[in-house]
Design a protein around this nucleic acid. Structure first.
Length: 322
DNA sequence: AAGCCATACAACCGCCCGGAG
DNA sequence: GCTCCGGGCGGTTGTATGGCT
């Protein structure tokens, strides 16, 4: 298939300069890394020339940011990261770079790819548009709780396997600059604290292939957690400091489906989240990576027949609505 | 073994914005 | 105010890879 953009690009003067396109070679990577190591990054066009690279500045920048940067993490999107991506996307839509800010080491490109390849795929499988309310509800009430369930399950397993050391059973409590607890994993105590933190339903509320006798409609529980008291005592969180709305992209998620207390950290100020990232031990993904780093072998939502069956059954049980 | 297909992801594009001159 | 340039963004495409028939 012809690439219009690239065809046009061929007519540009850049073509006269014999700029290279396509996959980067090891030699190019080495040149780029070497140059940045000694001269730093920035001024990408001149950097490209000075480094002896026949690439556009943009290409160099992208290669560095998305691939060569030492702190970049690739592959193995953990369950926790998946959960966070779903949540942040519900708030900000396709603001990939903004979402990426809250997933240390992940690039906007990777998150975008994850969304397109995994999430949109399942929207298609469920025969609904990825931007439809139906799919958003499926994510919110089925997919995300299911993720929480799996995370808890994985954590419990990891905890049980390491009870002698006690290290994996410790909670990871993130405190923001406002002394607000962002996330509180309690691996030893299966009290759904995580579900509550994320504002999703208890795993006991679900009909699963494993416990199909438990037929509690998710709908019945919505009111309960909709009316749950907001754990955040800081009035600033509700004073419109984030542009009068914590869900700036109202087209993506309507406020009627996003009560303020849906996610307890939904009202955090951006600086809170930034501060969290900056604290050395606040990478909460890594704190539980004892369970999640092996996510290849763990359950990735929607990637197995069982999971897809689960989502479909839940849809049917609710007649396609919630 | 070979061909086909789906998937993941690297790489590219155009567009936009802000700062400097 | 304008032009230029660097940089960032979201969207799209190309291709390697693996699974299936």
């Amino acid at each position: 298939m012809e690439d219009k953009g690239r065809s046009l690009k061929n007519n540009n003067m850049e073509d006269e300069m014999d700029l290279k396109r396509g996959p980067w070679t090891a030699e190019e990577d080495f040149k780029l890394m070497n140059y940045i190591a000694t001269n730093g990054e920035g001024r990408w066009n001149s950097l490209s020339r000075c480094a002896g690279l026949q690439r556009t500045g943009k290409s160099c920048r992208l290669r560095w940011l998305n691939y060569l940067r030492p702190d970049v993490r690739r592959g193995n999107i953990t369950l926790e990261e998946q959960l966070l991506i779903l949540e942040l996307h519900s708030r900000w839509g396709n603001r990939w770079s903004k979402i990426a800010q809250y997933l240390p080491g992940r690039t906007d490109n990777e998150i975008k790819n994850y969304w397109r390849t995994r999430v949109q795929k399942h929207a298609k499988q469920l025969k609904c548009d990825v931007n439809s309310q139906q799919f958003k509800d499926t994510m919110k009430y089925l997919w995300m709780p299911r993720l929480v369930e799996r995370i808890q399950s994985a954590s419990a397993t990891a905890s049980a396997a390491t009870t002698t050391t006690g290290s994996a059973g410790t909670s990871s409590c993130i405190t923001t600059s406002n002394n607000h607890q962002f996330m509180n994993y309690d691996y030893n105590n299966n009290n759904n604290s995580m579900g509550q933190q994320f504002g999703v339903m208890s795993n006991n509320d679900y009909i699963t292939p494993e416990n199909s006798s438990v037929a509690v409609s998710p709908v019945s529980d919505l009111t309960e957690y909709y009316s749950a008291p907001n754990p955040n005592p800081n009035p600033e969180y509700y004073s419109g400091q984030m542009g009068n709305s914590y869900y700036p992209d109202q087209n993506m998620v309507g406020p009627q489906l996003l009560p303020e207390n849906y996610f307890d950290y939904s009202g955090l100020l951006d600086e809170d989240l930034t501060a969290m990232q900056e604290q050395s031990n606040l990478n909460w993904f890594e704190n539980i990576n004892g369970a999640a780093s092996s996510s290849d072998s763990l359950w990735n939502i929607g990637e197995s027949d069982e999971d897809f069956w689960f989502l479909q059954q839940q849809q049917l049980n609710n007649n396609g609505s919630f």
